[in-house]
Design a protein around this nucleic acid. Structure first.
Length: 311
DNA sequence: TAAGATAAGAGGGACAT
DNA sequence: ATGTCAGTCTTATCTTA
């Protein structure tokens, strides 16, 4: 059985993650163009110290090779957590001698049973199906590994509590991804996930609420500044506009004006107003598109903001 | 063509029955 | 469990500059 490495589009960059200080592998969110650390899942700020050195030193090629760690890491996102031993197809024994036909057929039988017992229980079969799907989801949504691990952890919990029965694997999985994103502060909307996973928005939302209650989750609220960053990057707005929008967002959030409003809608309209102030020609349509809300929402929010804050 | 206005409808939370 | 209500957002259509 081949267990491949992650097929996420890794980019080796000249950066090193400022949060976990360990990692120089990043994935880029194609939508928002945010750079995300593949180790800790944090979004990397644009202006950051550069250093692409590994955290260890190698004084010779030999040492270098011996110090780089290889092998399949253990992962919650494998039904056996990547720990299983698998009987291979050897035609030689441990000392390198060819093994005879009788032994080979015995090994073949053992191998068959070995494989059968590994995926024996319905739990295992369910997890295998789910994690295969998670693997595809990872590519579609460009999820960094820590989010994948979190998702797998949540899914396992749901499985343990027998919450999957009578519901679809994809629905629960999509909801788990959403929860994982929320927990790590990655601004992905239910809509993003619904579109990436071919699960209807309604079902993702329902599954999410179910998991939220059943697993007793405490969800951090979405940081509205993150939403600003996401929308601004996606719609290619200038840094200046972005900064001003963030300031406005801070004020608005403090006055609790944004309570109960869609944070993406707020972010979109604030960016719209900020870009007008800076003389950037940006249409409501463009910004609404980038935020995944309608023009009408942008208009209404913008109008409210103008009225209340006289911007 | 972009922006504003208006209306109908969906879906979910709060609350009462 | 079910119904109602206010508030939000979406979709669609029309008007205005």
């Amino acid at each position: 059985m081949h267990r491949g490495y992650s097929n996420l589009k890794m980019q080796s960059s000249s950066l090193i993650c400022s949060i976990c200080k360990k990692n120089d592998k990043f994935v880029t969110d194609p939508e928002s163009e945010e750079i995300i650390c593949s180790n800790c899942g944090q979004v990397i700020p644009d202006n950051i110290q550069v250093s692409n050195r590994p955290e260890w030193h190698g004084f010779s090629i030999l040492q270098r090779n011996s110090r780089s760690r290889t092998g399949i890491p253990t992962s919650l996102a494998r039904h056996d957590m990547g720990l299983a031993t698998i009987i291979g197809r050897p035609d030689r024994d441990a000392s390198g001698q060819r093994i005879d036909a009788a032994m080979r057929s015995a090994m073949e039988r053992l191998r068959t049973w070995d494989l059968r017992t590994q995926v024996h229980t319905s739990t295992d079969r369910n997890l295998i199906q789910a994690f295969n799907e998670l693997d595809r989801l990872k590519d579609r949504l460009c999820l960094p590994d820590p989010i994948v691990e979190k998702t797998a952890y949540i899914y396992r919990k749901a499985q343990e509590r027998m919450l999957i029965r009578g519901r679809t694997v994809s629905g629960i999985l999509a909801a788990a991804v959403y929860i994982a994103c929320r927990e790590s502060g990655t601004p992905k909307t239910l809509k993003d996930i619904s579109e990436g996973s071919n699960v209807k928005l309604k079902e993702v939302a329902r599954s999410y609420r179910m998991l939220y209650f059943e697993l007793d989750l405490k969800m951090p609220i979405i940081d509205p500044i993150r939403c600003i960053a996401k929308v601004a990057n996606k719609s290619k707005l200038s840094e200046k506009t972005k900064r001003q929008a963030a300031e406005i967002m801070n004020i608005v959030t403090k006055k609790e004006f944004s309570a109960g409003k869609d944070p993406m809608g707020m972010a979109a309209s604030i960016l719209y107003l900020a870009s007008l102030k800076n003389g950037e020609n940006i249409t409501q349509k463009h910004i609404a598109n980038a935020a995944g809300v309608t023009e009408v929402t942008v208009r209404n929010r913008a109008k409210d903001l103008k009225d209340k804050f006289l911007i």
